[in-house]
């Protein structure tokens, strides 16, 4: 394409205008041809379902039958009528908690590991692979693996705690209302961390070494050099990573569904927007026999989309502004 466009520029327009117009048209056709496959797939599998669920959220449903236009009734019910409003708020709170804890872990421990890896030699290269490995596993595998490890009767976690003399700490990690969600967040972090570490590492390797060396020559301590030279340059990377994490954590579903089912077990303590949506729209698979409510489910999905969309746009805008300032 590059070659073609540079050729085109050489030809003076006034000499052969007709050919130029033709070329322009055929060029557009080529563009469209290249765009078409992605555009079609995107439209069929993303835009259409999004729009149709938006449509469904304005319709009153009785089981599988459409009953006519509902206006904002579905949204009103989800937002203001108990028990839906209570569940929505609880789920939203859990999503925020999920995101905040994951963010804290990846920007402290994750960043630390990334910096260590950037400084390190061959041994640490091996570590990089080890850290990244869980990320390549499917969530189903990770969920099942940790279900086995955390099992109170046969699992290794409680056995290990007993072995190192912390028997008092052993508990039904996934059945206890206090520990269930934090446990899942940690399991998720175990799988997820490899990704931010790799991204941070790439960001760190993009920062010229001279800058940090110059700061050190000027008498900065390693911490000062990191804090005032490296960190500000890494901020855009951290910012993008944070937005990605936010989107991912607000869509959290698979791991929780595999480990706890769709009822937010125990007693809604692991209920997130994803499981709340699933349960409402399709009926609770774990209780069986319950009829789904398409309208309410769609309303929840639309609300999820709005929250994620708004926060992501605000986040990107913040990062842009910061980049301009720098």
């Amino acid at each position: 394409m590059l070659a073609a466009s540079s050729c085109h520029r050489i030809i003076p327009k006034h000499v052969n205008g007709g050919v130029a117009v033709n070329r322009k048209r055929s060029r557009q056709r080529v563009y469209i041809m290249f765009l078409a496959p992605a555009l079609i797939v995107y439209t069929v599998f993303m835009v259409y379902p999004l729009l149709s669920s938006l449509g469904y959220s304005f319709i009153k449903w009785d089981g599988y039958i459409r009953q006519g236009f509902a206006g904002l009734d579905n949204f009103k019910k989800v937002l203001f009528e108990r028990p839906y409003s209570e569940r929505l708020l609880g789920a939203l709170r859990h999503n925020v908690f999920f995101f905040v804890v994951t963010f804290l872990i990846q920007t402290t421990f994750g960043l630390f590991v990334a910096v260590a890896l950037a400084k390190g030699g061959r041994f640490l290269r091996v570590c990089q692979t080890v850290y990244f490995a869980p990320y390549t596993l499917s969530q189903v595998v990770v969920g099942f693996l940790w279900l086995l490890l955390l099992n109170p009767t046969w699992g290794q976690v409680n056995k290990f705690l007993a072995l190192i003399g912390l028997k008092g700490l052993a508990r039904p990690w996934l059945g206890d209302m206090v520990t269930a969600l934090p446990t899942i967040i940690l399991v998720n972090a175990w799988r997820w961390l490899g990704f931010p570490i790799t991204v941070y590492l790439a960001g760190l390797q993009g920062i010229p070494l001279e800058l940090e060396e110059a700061a050190r020559v000027d008498g900065a301590t390693p911490w000062q050099a990191f804090r005032h030279v490296v960190l500000p340059l890494l901020l855009p990377t951290i910012g993008m990573m944070t937005i990605l994490t936010f989107i991912y954590d607000f869509n959290a579903f698979e791991l929780i569904f595999i480990m706890q089912g769709s009822s937010g077990s125990p007693y809604y303590s692991t209920d997130v927007l994803g499981t709340f949506f699933y349960r409402t729209a399709f009926g609770d698979a774990t209780t069986g026999g319950e009829v789904g409510q398409v309208g309410l489910g769609s309303a929840i999905a639309v609300l999820m989309f709005l929250v994620i969309c708004a926060v992501s746009i605000a986040g990107v805008w913040l990062i842009r502004r910061q980049e301009v300032e720098m």
Binding site: P83, S263, G264, S265, P266, Y267, Y268, R279, T280, G283, D284, T287, G288, G289, E290, V291, G292, Q293, L296
Partner: peptide, 13 residues
């Protein structure tokens, strides 16, 4: 168990 929230879901949780 005819509509949401069903008695089963409420009881179980």
């Amino acid at each position: 168990r005819f509509e949401q929230p069903s008695g089963s879901t409420l009881l179980q949780t």
